[in-house]
Simulated scan of single mutants.
Amino acid sequence: MPSNIDRYKKDFERLLRDAVLIEQSFSYSCFGKEYEAAVLKSYKGDEDAAKKHMDALPNFSTTYQSWYSECLALIKQLLPDRLNDFIRHYEKPKGRKDIGFENYRIEDALQGLRITRYGDEIVADPRSATSHLQQQVAILRSIKARFESSLFDIRQLVQADLLDSELDAARELLRHKFMRAAGAVAGVVLEKHLAQVCAARNIKLTKKHPTIADFNDALKNADVIETPQWRFHQHLGDIRNLCDHNKSTEPSAEQISDLIGGVAKVTKTLF
């Protein structure tokens, strides 16, 4: 089974390949005839080859949205200090009153927004977002250095592999009807992950031996998670406690399955 690092590398390489096509597609949609002329020149006047190249380009508007969402997830995990920069190149600035070249963003380009003055003078149009797309691709490319750098902290990725293995063990216990043992293992995985998230975000806890509830409360108080997610973690913790402490009520297979599935979701979505 491939490790999390291998999966991240594979996703990174695919997104980087897609980025080349997305940049070309954006240039084609923005510059039209100028882009066609440049492609034709690159193919040394071979019109058939140039046409084949342009016909193969994806639709920018639909392809970009999917690419952007996947990039967000990857950058959030591997390059979190650049996540806000990546988003800033896409989103309209909050509180923007007037639109000009300086504050025009990819989100505006996707809407086809075109700003003019004095009738026909173009102030900003989709071409104004070209540098923002280039910067997003540059941020994505910088992930490669994180894979290769000896300074890259891979503790989170290694722990993610370990937690995956422990969840697989919990699933196997459930398959053999060892309900309490399966729930206890899944509960430990949840506690470890919440502890790691708190540590990564420098959230200090005063208790010497904090529980799932303590980590959950700390994350909510630090505005890392919102109330619905806090309640979800609380629900998972309640099932775990049923396995560990309440000997009068036997946990059901459905409860344990919900616990294991819920913990798997948390480990893949909360960082």
Rank of each mutant, 00 (worst) to 15 (best):
E226D: 15
T227Y: 09
T227H: 10
T227V: 09
P228I: 03
P228T: 02
Q229E: 11
W230Y: 15
W230K: 15
R231S: 08
R231M: 08
R231C: 04
R231G: 01
R231E: 15
F232S: 00
H233A: 14
H233Q: 09
H233I: 15
Q234K: 15
H235K: 11
H235A: 10
H235Y: 12
L236H: 04
L236D: 01
L236T: 03
D238E: 14
D238L: 08
R240D: 03
R240V: 00
N241M: 01
N241A: 06
L242S: 15
L242R: 15
L242N: 12
C243K: 02
C243S: 08
D244C: 08
H245G: 06
H245S: 05
H245W: 06
N246Y: 11
K247F: 12
S248I: 11
T249C: 07
T249P: 07
T249G: 04
E250M: 15
E250Q: 13
E250L: 13
P251R: 07
P251E: 03
S252Q: 07
S252N: 06
S252V: 01
S252G: 09
Q255P: 05
Q255R: 12
I256D: 06
I256G: 05
I256V: 15
I256P: 05
S257W: 10
D258P: 05
D258A: 12
D258R: 14
D258T: 12
D258E: 13
L259V: 07
L259S: 02
I260R: 02
I260N: 04
G261L: 09
G261I: 02
G261A: 14
G261F: 06
G262L: 02
G262C: 01
G262T: 00
V263R: 02
A264H: 09
A264Y: 08
K265N: 11
K265A: 11
T267I: 15
K268Y: 03
K268W: 00
K268F: 00
T269V: 09
T269M: 09
